[in-house]
């Protein structure tokens, strides 16, 4: 019954997110859930956290923006590490693509009449190629799960299409990183599971608080 997607991901605990707006609070909570219950549990958490507080499309976009800030920073910091040329090339490509997601989401927030969330500060605790690839895999899986969880809550269907075109790329990143780690690029037939009663129970105090 165990598989990679559902296993806990303690490496997420290494990430420090600074800044206390609502989006970064949900992101911090999502990462905490991922740490104890695994990347696949993040989607249901995000669904519930956003739904419980009657989030607008702008709130959801700002949450996605904060996630993309994190991913962009992560890949940009990775360029300072000593990486093999293959991995360095991929990190550079992914940094560029995540930056494009940031730009697009900022634009979407403004177009929707909102104010883009401020960029939090991040620390990742990644020191070498091995730890980079490990966290990259978890982050991308987490990102897929988070987008899949948030998607059905978007009211504007154009925004849903935009979010879908982004999550497709996150899923492609996840698969590529997983291949580099020598693990199954698509372990499950479904990228999101709602069968996580224990997780939901654990996060209920968080999302109400």
């Amino acid at each position: 019954m165990t598989n990679t997607m559902n296993n806990a991901a303690p490496e997420l605990d290494l990430i420090d997110v600074g800044g206390m707006n609502r989006a970064s609070f949900i992101l911090k909570s999502a990462l905490a859930i991922g740490t104890t219950a695994g990347a696949a549990a993040v989607g249901p958490f995000v669904t519930n956290a956003l739904a419980a507080t009657a989030s607008s499309d702008i709130d959801i976009l700002n949450f996605a923006l904060t996630l993309e800030y994190l991913e962009t920073r992560f890949y940009k910091e990775a360029t300072k590490l000593k990486l093999s040329s293959k991995v360095a090339k991929l990190a550079k490509q992914f940094a560029d693509e995540e930056q494009q997601h940031v730009n697009a989401l900022k634009g979407a927030v403004k177009q929707s009449g909102g104010k883009p969330a401020a960029k939090p500060t991040f620390a990742f605790g990644v020191t070498d190629e091995k730890s980079f690839l490990k966290l990259a895999q978890t982050l991308e899986d987490t990102g897929v799960s988070a987008y899949n969880g948030a998607g059905p809550l978007l009211k504007n269907k154009d925004l849903l299409l935009a979010a879908g075109s982004i999550v497709q790329v996150e899923a492609r990143h996840a698969a590529a990183i997983r291949l580099l780690n020598g693990v199954n690029p698509a372990p499950d037939a479904f990228d999101k599971s709602l069968d996580k009663a224990a997780v939901l129970k654990a996060v209920t105090p968080l999302i109400k608080g």
Binding site: D96, A186, D191
Partner: peptide, 27 residues
């Protein structure tokens, strides 16, 4: 299901030496 198809696509693109994200940053 969509994101799993995307994972399959990226894997097969890797196998045949094609770009993982053929459409760029947005599918």
């Amino acid at each position: 299901i969509h994101s799993v198809e995307a994972r399959h696509a990226a894997t097969l693109n890797t196998l045949i030496g094609k770009k993982i994200t053929p459409d760029g940053a947005f599918g």
